[in-house]
Simulated scan of single mutants.
Amino acid sequence: MKPTSLAMAFLLGLLVAAGLFLLRSVPEPVAPRVITPRGELAPQEETVIALFEAARGSVVSITTEERVLDPWTRRAVDVPRGTGSGFVWDAQGHIVTNAHVVRGASGARVRLADGRQVAASLVGAAPRHDLAVLRIDTRADPPAPLPVGESEGLRVGQSVLAIGNPFGLDWTLTTGIVSALDREIPSESGTIQGLIQTDAAINPGNSGGPLIDSAGRLIGVNTAIFSPSGSSAGIGFAVPVDVVNRVVPQLIRTGRYRPPVLGVVHDERITELARRRGIEGVLVLGVEPGSPAAQAGLRAARQDASGGLVPMDTIRAVDGRRVASSADLRDALEEHAPGDEVTLTVRRDGDDVEIDVVLGAPQP
């Protein structure tokens, strides 16, 4: 055999050997594992899914705009300002959200669960309760409103669901329980009192979204979180639906919220000074003529010959609810509507007396 033929045969042998080696080193195909059947969902899971699917369509995403001056063209333009959540209140296209979501905005757009985006106008806001109402054109055929529950009978430990748009992640569901009741937090407009505390994760963007109970009813409006990091730390707060159901109809009707009128003048600084002197309650500094307080015979403090203040009547409770500050008195009165009769516990001449008062309506 010629040397060339020997070399070719040697190379061919090497190729065959290498091919056999590679064939032996290629792993056999691995088949996917057999799927284990899931079986039925747990009843609790089925309930949560059904609640979310029933409520999702009533929740909206809100994008606000801010009007700024273009430094180059010197023209006013609208730029994105922030995002939040809201929900359909009624068939007239009213959307409830937080006042801080729309504060300072020049405009807003609402995105419905089906993807449609519609312009919204501001109807009114109640910053003290961090509530606001927007309105969209009813020709947009808004979804059905959420069923309204009540917050008076809530109990710590009840299951709750929060739906909103945290960090722009639309229609996010979180679950938890009622962690505490009657909480208060500071806000730009003062102190918001009587809030529901929940451990359902609430993050920036959830503001204005609904808090729902296990019956699918609205029980609160998510408003704030307590978090050093700015994200959910398991402590969120919601405005109780009883407050929402009292404030929102008046915002829709008049564009602003004004509580029922008692007709007394009081000042927290004077009340605090009186408290230091051992006088508990809200000192009545003045009684407006013709007001419910005047008709009930409440007496205002007077000055003595030396110019000192002489207390006459001090309001200590409303319908048995103790009041120790001006804020306490306002909150107690706001639980009622014009025309309601309340019983004031008043300190007068060293004794506690009870005086019935029919609350009046605010002047237009």
Score class of each variant (00 low, 15 high):
P210K: 00
G339R: 10
G190A: 10
P71W: 08
G164R: 01
L134N: 03
F21M: 14
G115A: 12
L154K: 03
L169R: 09
D130Y: 05
P338I: 07
P3V: 09
V79K: 00
A296R: 00
G84D: 00
T64E: 00
D141A: 13
A55C: 12
V247T: 12
G57V: 00
P338G: 10
V358G: 07
R74S: 05
A215N: 15
G84A: 05
V239G: 07
T191D: 06
V244F: 09
R253E: 14
G278Q: 05
R246G: 06
R67V: 09
F52E: 02
A113F: 06
T175C: 07
D356L: 08
V318S: 07
R299A: 06
T198P: 11
I235E: 04
G205I: 01
V241K: 01
R111H: 00
V77K: 11
A224Q: 04
F226R: 14
G307Q: 06
L298Q: 03
I185T: 10
I355N: 04
I279N: 05
T36C: 08
L11G: 13
A301F: 08
A215P: 08
E53M: 07
S179D: 01
V178W: 00
T174C: 06
D213E: 09
S291V: 08
E150Y: 08
I35L: 15
G205M: 02
R302K: 10
L359I: 12
H100N: 02
A224M: 13
S151N: 05
R256D: 15
V68L: 10
D352C: 06
P260T: 14
D114A: 06
I49S: 11
P240G: 11
A76Q: 14
G194N: 08
D90I: 04
A294F: 05
V59K: 02
E150I: 14
G290N: 12
V261N: 05
V241H: 01
A42V: 12
L154D: 03
P142A: 08
